[in-house]
């Protein structure tokens, strides 16, 4: 955890940490995700395998599955959600205390999957705010572990203090992958600082091209 920098031991005999409140809170939250397993079909079996000793999400602090939504902060919708069950799923989500996150596990909960049917919710994002989608039918436990790791990276970038004081939060662009970059990477100063695959780098290069053509007397 880069944000928790130990102050030099020589300076203080007993040792302490200097950090930001945001970083500390996020560190605590991301390493103690308690999943609420909403096992609705075969994905539920993979979810159980993930919690069990072979895949062992205890390594990431997310093994404490509780069957009371009051004790959970991670709703894993694992399987086919029907419209009849949607009310129960929404009630469970409402009963979970803030902050809370949602993983849509498997194609059924992500998009309805193969069930293009009158009875099935075509993607749980129509009733719940989903943070991570996991493809697969059902996804392997590794894939869901990857989702949890991605969610941890996202939680690292949240700003709980700003929410406490009702300040505007830094908006993460949809699809920009910004929440996967390091927390303190900040705003890049020039296009050369960016990773070449970053869409902003490409946009900056395009802009430079247009400017160069413009200065060369060509019509833009």
């Amino acid at each position: 955890m880069a944000a928790l920098l130990p102050v030099r031991e020589q300076a203080s005999g007993d040792g302490f940490f200097a950090t930001r409140v945001d970083a500390l809170v996020n560190w605590g939250r991301k390493n103690s995700l308690w999943p609420m397993p909403l096992g609705l079909s075969c994905c539920g079996i993979e979810l159980m395998a993930m919690i069990g000793p072979k895949f062992d999400i205890a390594r990431f602090g997310a093994e404490a599955a509780r069957f009371s939504p009051r004790q959970c902060d991670l709703l894993v919708v694992a399987g086919t959600l029907t419209w009849k069950m949607a009310q129960a799923a929404r009630t469970i989500y409402d009963q979970m205390p803030d902050p809370k996150w949602v993983i849509a596990m498997g194609v059924c909960s992500s998009s309805g999957g193969m069930y293009d049917s009158y009875a099935v919710v075509q993607g749980v994002d129509s009733i719940l705010p989903v943070d991570v989608y996991v493809p697969g039918c059902p996804p392997r436990p590794d894939a869901v572990i990857d989702a949890i790791l991605k969610l941890q990276q996202r939680i690292e970038r949240e700003q709980p203090l700003k929410r406490v004081f009702a300040l505007p939060e830094h908006v993460i662009e949809q699809g920009s992958g910004a929440w996967l970059r390091a927390p303190n990477s900040g705003v890049p100063k020039s296009a050369s600082d960016l990773h070449p695959h970053d869409p902003r780098a490409r946009r900056a290069i395009e802009r430079r091209e247009i400017e160069r053509q413009g200065s060369g007397g060509g019509k833009v």
Partner: peptide, 30 residues
């Protein structure tokens, strides 16, 4: 199987498989 207030009978041949307003009851509840 279907909710008590459901208005259709899904296995009838003239019922579209994607349903008729499938989210109607949920939206009302919500």
């Amino acid at each position: 199987l279907m909710p008590d207030e459901y208005e259709h009978h899904p296995l009838r041949k003239d019922f579209p498989h994607e349903g008729i307003e499938p989210d109607k009851l949920y939206r009302a509840w919500d």
